[in-house]
């Protein structure tokens, strides 16, 4: 395509927007609402997923051994678990390490004073354990059930409730967002299609002349497609800009609230939102592809229907 043809089509497309500004604005607003909600749900789902992933990495399956279990038996348990596959990491925590960790977490700055009473008597003497982290949290339940059948295993702890709750929330958000976004997409498609139809009616005479003086189908259709793409572009740009500021504020706000609630560091880490520099580029790509793509596809097919050139 020649450069002057490109500029001509772009100019005519922009003129189309100006000619039926009300329809164009309505289309832009609907696309904007649609993409805003999409980005919002995208952010929520991504963050819940992020929390689930955090839970997977920070909250694993803890396996405690029988008091009389020897090193050979513990090793056999290790090998049996590893042989199941899907294991990200198996970490051994000795009774001493467990006691140190307990003191840090629950006694805080006064750990030495409070722990003095126990002297050399480790109250968690038989609490050495394996902490197991899986690649896929879906397999957690079956893994727990398997470990319970192994000889030498006294107890198995895992964060089933948390993970199930998070997964449940994610599923509800996913379905809700899918329904709302589908409805909004349908409205957007209808409005863009209407806007292009009105533009085609405005330019009917011009298109007839173009056809008779030898304009190609591309040349006749391009301004309408440009119009659709522009509607989609502005429809994406507005919510993306809004989303940037909203998300940045939300990240700071949530972190402040979590810390103010006096939660432990590990819990506050769990509830941190994905940093904006990580999530926003994805939102921009998805938002622009959606907006521009929708504008392009809808206008292309609408104008094909209207202009039998």
């Amino acid at each position: 395509m020649k450069l002057n043809t490109f500029f001509y089509c772009t100019k005519q497309g922009l003129k189309n927007i100006g000619r039926n500004i009300l329809f164009s604005m309505a289309s832009i607003a609907t696309v904007a609402a649609c993409i805003f909600l999409f980005c919002l749900f995208f952010a929520i789902i991504s963050n819940v997923q992020h929390i689930v992933t955090e839970a997977e990495t920070t909250v694993g399956i803890t396996v405690f051994f029988n008091e009389d279990a020897g090193e050979a038996e513990k090793k056999a348990i290790y090998e049996a678990i590893e042989a199941q596959g899907g294991i990200k990491e198996i970490r051994y925590t000795s009774a001493e390490e467990a006691w140190e960790s307990f003191k840090d977490e629950y006694f805080g700055d006064k750990s030495e004073e409070l722990a003095e009473a126990f002297a050399d008597d480790n109250p968690l003497a038989s609490s050495d354990n394996y902490e197991i982290f899986l690649n896929d949290i879906e397999n957690q339940q079956s893994m727990v059930e398997y470990i319970r059948t192994l000889p030498g295993v006294r107890e198995v702890n895992y964060a089933n409730a948390l993970v199930s709750a998070l997964k449940g929330i994610n599923r509800v958000i996913y379905i809700l967002s899918a329904v709302i976004i589908t409805v909004l997409f349908a409205v957007s498609i209808f409005l863009i299609s209407n806007t292009i139809s009105v533009a085609a009616a405005f330019r009917k005479r011009e298109n007839e002349i173009m056809k008779l003086i030898g304009a190609t189908n591309f040349m006749i259709r391009a301004p309408f497609v440009v119009e659709g793409v522009m509607i989609g572009f502005f429809g994406a740009l507005i919510p993306l800009t809004a989303m940037y500021f909203i998300y940045r504020r939300a990240t700071t706000f949530l972190l402040t609230q979590v810390l103010a609630a006096g939660t432990t560091v590990s819990v506050s880490n769990l509830f941190q939102l994905i940093p904006i520099r990580e999530i926003f580029p994805q939102m921009v790509i998805v938002g622009l592809i959606l907006g521009v793509g929708m504008g392009f596809v809808v206008s292309f097919f609408t104008i094909r229907k209207h202009l039998k050139v």
Binding site: K2, N4, T5, M210, I213, G214, A215, M219, I220
Partner: peptide
Amino acid sequence: AFAQRVIGASP
């Protein structure tokens, strides 16, 4: 000029 523009004539 319109007739020229639509066939991609240069300015």
